[in-house]
């Protein structure tokens, strides 16, 4: 029933329990959190350099993505009415606890930035909230890497060196994509550059991750979603930087591709982690190799 492998397992059963997180909620949140955080930073940069329409589009996008994030996070709880229990404690050992407090600090800023941006009321307060959200935004976009890496899921845990950079790149690419989609061509320069740099970092981090993980990278290498995400991100970024400079329609298409690419990347990372948790070989073999290495080092000394 279980194919003969070069390691032992208990009837081929996984060692770990499968994460109970639903892909649509948690992988969706990884994407929306990145989009929100990076959009806020892009909005602040745009506002401070005289690009009001890009700033306003990014602020509204950030607030929408934040709302979607909160929906996904609360929807995934087994007891949604108890989500406030996360405000009982602050634990640096729990990225989810730290993330809750980051979102608590970020939310009011992002909300005030979007509200003042759209209505034109309280410009001073709006400027302060915009800068505040822009500074906290990168933390919103990258803490999620620590969130999934701080588990026993082999692919996520072992990839912790590259994951924050992959997420930061993917977040920048998606925020750039939203800017390309929503801002007029004359103001979309920062969005084009953010998309290009973000997509490049995302692809580079993924490549480095796959190389460093060795045999453990198998679920990443096999993932069609990750390949599709990279292709969409790169195509969107390149199209945005070329034809997207002249044609509004081309810029919008490039933006949509970037958003879809970032989402595919997050769902791909999520899926690869689930696969590695469900395969005992990914739990047992790296641990066996670690033990063998430790034994060899002991024997040498």
């Amino acid at each position: 029933m279980v194919p003969k492998a070069d390691f032992d397992s208990y009837y081929g059963r996984p060692v770990l329990n499968e994460p109970t997180w639903r892909a649509a909620d948690i992988a969706g949140y990884l994407f929306l959190g990145g989009l929100a955080g990076a959009s806020s930073t892009l909005a602040a940069a745009a506002e401070l350099t005289g690009r009001p329409r890009l700033a306003r589009a990014a602020k509204v996008g950030a607030l929408g993505a934040l709302g979607g994030s909160l929906y996904a996070l609360i929807h995934d709880l087994g007891r949604p009415e108890r989500f406030v229990n996360m405000l009982r404690v602050f634990k640096v050992t729990s990225p989810m606890s730290v993330g809750t407090w980051i979102l608590t600090a970020y939310g009011p800023h992002a909300g005030a930035a979007a509200a003042t941006g759209v209505t034109g009321l309280f410009p001073g307060l709006g400027r302060a909230a915009t800068v505040g959200a822009g500074v906290v935004g990168p933390a919103v976009a990258t803490y999620t890497a620590a969130l999934i890496c701080d588990t026993a899921v082999p692919v996520w845990h072992e990839a912790y060196r590259e994951m924050p950079f992959l997420f930061a790149g993917s977040a920048a690419a998606s925020a750039g994509g939203l800017g390309l989609l929503a801002a007029p061509l004359s103001e979309a320069g920062p969005a084009r550059r953010a998309a290009l740099a973000g997509a490049a970092v995302e692809v580079a981090a993924a490549a480095r991750m796959e190389r460093r993980l060795g045999p453990l990278a198998e679920p990443l290498k096999r993932s069609g979603l990750l390949r599709l995400g990279e292709a969409l991100s790169l195509a969107g970024a390149l199209a945005g930087a070329t034809v997207g400079r002249r044609s509004r329609v081309a810029a919008m298409a490039a933006g949509a591709a970037l958003l879809a690419g970032s989402a595919c990347t997050r769902f791909g990372i999520f899926q690869a982690g689930m696969e590695s948790a469900n395969d005992p070989k990914h739990t047992v073999q790296p641990q066996r190799r670690r033990l063998a290495r430790a034994r060899a080092e002991r024997d040498l000394t």
């Binding site: 940069a45 990258t142 803490y143 320069g189 973000g198």
Partner: peptide, 24 residues
């Protein structure tokens, strides 16, 4: 992990600021 995430966050902040460096 926190160190890596912190470095990535600072890089993201600096990178996005740099995209808008030239004033419109």
């Amino acid at each position: 992990m926190w160190r890596q995430a912190g470095v990535a966050a600072v890089a993201l902040l600096a990178g996005l600021a740099a995209t808008a460096w030239r004033r419109k």
